[in-house]
Deep mutational scan, measured.
Amino acid sequence: MLDDRARMEAAKKEKVEQILAEFQLQEEDLKKVMRRMQKEMDRGLRLETHEEASVKMLPTYVRSTPEGSEVGDFLSLDLGGTNFRVMLVKVGEGEEGQWSVKTKHQMYSIPEDAMTGTAEMLFDYISECISDFLDKHQMKHKKLPLGFTFSFPVRHEDIDKGILLNWTKGFKASGAEGNNVVGLLRDAIKRRGDFEMDVVAMVNDTVATMISCYYEDHQCEVGMIVGTGCNACYMEEMQNVELVEGDEGRMCVNTEWGAFGDSGELDEFLLEYDRLVDESSANPGQQLYEKLIGGKYMGELVRLVLLRLVDENLLFHGEASEQLRTRGAFETRFVSQVESDTGDRKQIYNILSTLGLRPSTTDCDIVRRACESVSTRAAHMCSAGLAGVINRMRESRSEDVMRITVGVDGSVYKLHPSFKERFHASVRRLTPSCEITFIESEEGSGRGAALVSAVACKKACMLGQ
Score class of each variant (00 low, 15 high):
3 D>E: 08
8 M>D: 15
9 E>G: 15
9 E>Q: 06
12 K>N: 01
14 E>I: 05
15 K>R: 10
15 K>T: 15
16 V>H: 09
16 V>M: 13
17 E>T: 11
20 L>M: 08
20 L>D: 01
21 A>W: 15
23 F>H: 00
26 Q>N: 15
26 Q>W: 07
27 E>F: 02
28 E>L: 05
29 D>C: 09
29 D>M: 02
31 K>R: 11
36 R>P: 00
40 E>G: 03
41 M>P: 00
42 D>E: 09
42 D>Y: 09
44 G>M: 01
45 L>D: 00
45 L>E: 02
47 L>W: 03
47 L>V: 13
50 H>T: 08
51 E>K: 10
53 A>I: 01
54 S>M: 11
54 S>P: 08
55 V>W: 01
56 K>C: 03
56 K>E: 01
58 L>W: 13
58 L>N: 12
60 T>H: 03
64 S>C: 13
64 S>Y: 06
67 E>G: 09
67 E>T: 15
68 G>N: 11
70 E>S: 13
71 V>D: 01
73 D>H: 03
74 F>T: 12
75 L>D: 05
75 L>T: 02
76 S>E: 10
77 L>M: 08
78 D>H: 15
78 D>T: 15
80 G>N: 09
80 G>Q: 04
82 T>C: 12
82 T>W: 08
82 T>S: 13
83 N>E: 14
87 M>R: 04
88 L>H: 06
89 V>T: 08
90 K>F: 08
90 K>W: 08
91 V>T: 12
92 G>E: 08
93 E>H: 15
93 E>I: 10
94 G>V: 11
95 E>M: 13
95 E>R: 10
96 E>Q: 12
97 G>S: 15
98 Q>W: 06
101 V>N: 03
102 K>N: 00
102 K>G: 13
103 T>M: 05
104 K>C: 03
105 H>Q: 04
105 H>T: 14
105 H>D: 14
108 Y>E: 02
108 Y>C: 06
108 Y>P: 00
110 I>W: 06
110 I>Y: 05
111 P>E: 14
111 P>N: 14
113 D>W: 13
113 D>H: 15
117 G>P: 11
119 A>G: 10
119 A>M: 11
120 E>D: 15
120 E>F: 06
121 M>I: 10
122 L>T: 03
122 L>E: 06
122 L>A: 11
123 F>S: 07
124 D>A: 05
127 S>H: 02
128 E>K: 13
129 C>W: 06
132 D>I: 13
132 D>L: 11
134 L>R: 04
134 L>Y: 04
136 K>G: 09
136 K>D: 12
138 Q>L: 06
139 M>E: 07
141 H>I: 04
142 K>V: 13
142 K>T: 09
145 P>C: 08
147 G>I: 12
148 F>S: 05
148 F>Q: 06
148 F>N: 03
152 F>V: 14
153 P>N: 12
154 V>F: 08
156 H>S: 10
156 H>M: 12
157 E>Q: 14
157 E>S: 09
158 D>A: 13
162 G>P: 14
163 I>T: 12
164 L>C: 14
165 L>A: 12
166 N>H: 15
168 T>R: 12
169 K>P: 13
170 G>K: 12
170 G>P: 07
171 F>Y: 14
173 A>S: 11
174 S>C: 15
176 A>N: 10
179 N>Q: 13
179 N>S: 12
179 N>H: 12
181 V>R: 05
181 V>I: 12
182 V>K: 04
183 G>K: 14
183 G>I: 06
183 G>S: 11
187 D>Q: 15
188 A>K: 02
188 A>T: 07
190 K>D: 06
190 K>P: 05
193 G>P: 07
193 G>F: 05
193 G>S: 06
194 D>M: 14
194 D>A: 10
195 F>H: 15
196 E>N: 05
197 M>V: 10
197 M>A: 07
198 D>F: 04
198 D>S: 14
199 V>I: 06
200 V>E: 06
200 V>P: 05
205 D>P: 13
207 V>I: 12
207 V>T: 10
208 A>R: 04
211 I>A: 05
212 S>M: 03
217 D>T: 08
218 H>I: 08
218 H>Q: 11
219 Q>P: 07
219 Q>I: 08
220 C>K: 02
221 E>P: 01
222 V>W: 00
223 G>N: 01
225 I>K: 12
228 T>C: 12
230 C>F: 04
231 N>D: 10
232 A>Y: 07
233 C>Q: 00
239 Q>H: 13
241 V>A: 08
241 V>Q: 06
242 E>K: 01
243 L>A: 07
245 E>G: 11
247 D>G: 06
250 R>D: 00
251 M>W: 02
252 C>N: 00
253 V>L: 07
253 V>H: 01
254 N>I: 11
256 E>V: 04
256 E>T: 09
256 E>L: 09
256 E>Q: 10
256 E>D: 15
257 W>K: 02
258 G>T: 03
260 F>P: 00
260 F>R: 00
263 S>I: 13
266 L>D: 00
268 E>I: 02
269 F>M: 14
271 L>K: 05
273 Y>D: 01
276 L>Q: 06
278 D>M: 01
280 S>Q: 15
289 Y>D: 00
293 I>C: 11
293 I>M: 14
295 G>C: 12
296 K>R: 14
297 Y>H: 08
297 Y>E: 12
297 Y>P: 04
297 Y>V: 12
298 M>G: 01
302 V>E: 01
306 L>Y: 01
309 L>F: 11
312 E>S: 12
314 L>P: 00
316 F>P: 01
317 H>R: 08
317 H>P: 07
317 H>A: 13
317 H>V: 09
318 G>F: 08
318 G>H: 06
319 E>Y: 15
319 E>T: 09
321 S>A: 15
323 Q>F: 07
324 L>P: 01
324 L>K: 00
325 R>K: 14
326 T>N: 02
327 R>I: 12
327 R>Y: 12
327 R>L: 14
327 R>V: 14
328 G>P: 03
328 G>D: 06
328 G>S: 14
328 G>E: 08
329 A>W: 04
333 R>T: 02
335 V>Q: 06
335 V>F: 03
337 Q>W: 06
339 E>C: 06
340 S>G: 08
342 T>G: 12
342 T>Y: 07
342 T>F: 08
343 G>R: 04
347 Q>C: 15
347 Q>P: 08
349 Y>H: 15
351 I>D: 00
352 L>M: 09
354 T>Q: 14
355 L>P: 00
357 L>A: 06
357 L>M: 06
357 L>Y: 11
359 P>V: 03
362 T>V: 04
364 C>Y: 05
365 D>G: 09
367 V>N: 00
367 V>C: 08
367 V>I: 05
368 R>F: 08
368 R>A: 07
369 R>Q: 09
370 A>T: 09
370 A>G: 04
371 C>H: 01
372 E>N: 12
373 S>F: 05
374 V>L: 06
376 T>V: 09
376 T>H: 11
377 R>G: 00
377 R>D: 00
378 A>I: 05
378 A>L: 07
380 H>A: 15
380 H>F: 12
380 H>G: 13
381 M>E: 00
383 S>L: 00
383 S>N: 00
384 A>W: 00
385 G>M: 04
389 V>P: 00
392 R>Y: 03
392 R>D: 05
394 R>L: 04
394 R>S: 04
395 E>A: 12
397 R>Q: 00
400 D>N: 04
400 D>P: 08
402 M>G: 10
405 T>S: 09
406 V>W: 00
407 G>R: 03
408 V>Q: 00
408 V>S: 09
409 D>I: 04
409 D>K: 09
410 G>C: 02
412 V>A: 07
413 Y>E: 02
418 S>E: 12
419 F>D: 00
421 E>I: 14
421 E>P: 06
421 E>A: 11
422 R>W: 09
422 R>L: 14
424 H>P: 02
427 V>R: 00
428 R>S: 13
428 R>V: 14
429 R>I: 10
429 R>D: 12
430 L>F: 06
431 T>M: 08
431 T>E: 06
432 P>E: 10
433 S>T: 09
433 S>L: 09
435 E>D: 10
435 E>K: 06
437 T>Q: 12
438 F>A: 01
439 I>L: 08
439 I>K: 11
440 E>G: 10
442 E>G: 02
443 E>G: 09
444 G>S: 08
444 G>L: 10
447 R>N: 10
447 R>D: 09
448 G>H: 13
449 A>W: 13
450 A>L: 08
450 A>P: 06
455 V>A: 13
456 A>W: 07
456 A>H: 08
460 A>N: 12
461 C>M: 13
461 C>L: 07
462 M>N: 13
463 L>S: 14
463 L>E: 14
465 Q>C: 12
